[in-house]
């Protein structure tokens, strides 16, 4: 077993070189490089944690903004509906008023027209009476040779016309 057989001649060399190389590893790698590697890990972990926190904050902000938007939208919708209802009411009222005024105008015109028609009819009857009276006077003068008083003729014609 060389570990024991060679112990007396090799122990100093073994101890020396182990201490030398382990010391190199400890001071160069363990003390020099490992902390930098671990710092990188720590920086990354911190960055991930920060990013997660920022994302969470952004999500909360988005939620609250959405809520605010929802409230605003609801108010605006209610306002718009009130506005529409009001406009509808006004429009209906305006239509009613215009219909009423148009009706009045139409009625007035109808009355005027009826009056005109009645006037025309009366005028026409007068004309007919006059013509009939003259005609009757002429007829009597030609047939009987009697001159009839115009007033008498008119009474007679009226009697005959109106029965």
């Amino acid at each position: 077993m060389p570990q024991i057989a060679q112990l007396s001649e090799t122990y100093a060399s073994q101890i020396f070189w182990v201490l030398l190389f382990f010391g190199l590893i400890f001071f160069v790698i363990g003390k020099g490089m490992v902390p930098k590697v671990m710092e990188t890990v720590a920086v990354r972990d911190k960055q991930i944690a920060d990013d997660l926190a920022a994302a969470e904050a952004a999500r909360k902000a988005a939620d609250s903004q959405e809520e605010a938007w929802r409230v605003a939208a609801n108010t605006q919708r209610a306002e718009a509906q009130a506005l529409i209802a009001k406009a509808k009411g006004e429009a209906a009222k305006a239509t009613e008023t215009r219909l009423a005024s148009a009706n009045t105008v139409i009625d007035q015109r109808l009355a005027e027209a009826e009056q005109r028609i009645a006037g025309a009819r009366a005028g026409a009857l007068e004309e007919i009476e006059t013509v009939a009276t003259e005609a009757a006077g002429d007829i009597v003068a030609r047939l009987a040779g009697v001159t009839v008083d115009a007033a008498a003729a008119r009474v007679a014609v009226k009697e005959a016309l109106n029965g």
């Binding site: 001649e9 090799t10 100093a12 060399s13 073994q14 020396f16 070189w17 182990v18 030398l20 190389f21 190199l24 590893i25 160069v28 790698i29 490089m33 490992v34 590697v37």
Partner: peptide
């Protein structure tokens, strides 16, 4: 104390270099 550079020390050196390159 005799401290020859042995095959054992050589492999300690190789281990050290390999570990250094790894890190």
């Amino acid at each position: 104390y005799s401290i020859p550079f042995t095959n054992s020390a050589l492999w300690m050196a190789i281990t050290t270099v390999a570990l250094f390159l790894f890190v």
